[in-house]
């Protein structure tokens, strides 16, 4: 009798735990999918990644020491699942290696390219440029980043994570997040600029070609 009661109580506790986990996962599904989509850049791959991460998170739930840290914890499971996917596909993992893009180039600033301080007050080339940008231009610019910058940009800029939260999720130092956010923005702006020039969205007026 005692055994039956204990089993029933264990079953009820397990059911509660599962329901709580399910509620939290469903709360975070949109964010998990958005991050997965920007990392994989394919809808079906993103769905697979999220589903696999959720299964892994359930299996590793005991490793979550602080319940209030569920959000960064499950995002870190997603990131680690993505790392495993890359390894499984035999791809060189670039999520943790930014060397390719650093290249010693100075940071690029769209504002510096567009701003003209001596224009009349009603003229605003920066705003004109932003008004012409489409969502797909921005998406293309984010997707053009190598994974190591993209992961930080997606977490901080798109999902609004703090630097500390992004550092915890990616298991990298906060100083690295700070420098990658800055560099990632710069590379994103350069990609936007190049696309704007190629697509004729912006035509050169006063900027110096040699500065590119």
């Amino acid at each position: 009798m005692k055994e039956q009661t204990a089993r029933r109580q264990d079953g009820e506790a397990g059911g509660d735990r599962r329901r709580l986990f399910q509620a939290r996962v469903l709360d975070l599904t949109d964010g998990l999918y958005r991050v997965a989509l920007r990392l994989t850049r394919h809808e079906s791959d993103a769905e697979e990644l999220v589903a696999e991460a959720v299964a892994k998170a359930w299996a590793a739930l005991d490793s979550l020491e602080d319940e209030s840290r569920f959000r960064p914890w499950i995002f870190s499971v997603l990131i680690n699942t993505f790392r495993s996917h890359c390894r499984r596909r035999g791809r060189e993992l670039s999520l943790d290696d930014c060397q390719d893009d650093a290249g010693g180039e100075p940071d690029f600033s769209l504002f510096d390219k567009l701003h003209q301080p001596f224009l009349l007050w009603w003229s605003n080339p920066e705003q004109d440029f932003l008004n012409k940008l489409l969502g797909e231009d921005l998406q293309r610019a984010v997707d053009s980043l190598s994974e190591c910058y993209r992961a930080v940009v997606v977490l901080v800029i798109l999902e609004g994570c703090s630097y500390q939260e992004a550092a915890d999720i990616l298991a990298i130092p906060i100083g690295t997040v700070r420098s990658r956010v800055k560099r990632g923005r710069s590379l994103m702006q350069k990609a936007l600029w190049m696309h704007a020039r190629e697509a004729g969205i912006h035509t050169a007026t006063s900027e110096t070609e040699g500065e590119m």
């Binding site: 599962r18 599904t29 999918y33 932003l130 921005l138 998406q139 800029i157 798109l158």
Partner: peptide, 27 residues
């Protein structure tokens, strides 16, 4: 302003089928 525009990239919601799939998975 550029950051605000970037925040609007891509879908804001996960596909309904993924939500159903995750619910079934956790069940």
């Amino acid at each position: 302003h550029l950051t605000e525009l970037s925040r609007k990239i891509g879908p804001s919601k996960a596909p309904a089928e993924l939500r159903r799939r995750l619910a079934r998975l956790v069940e």
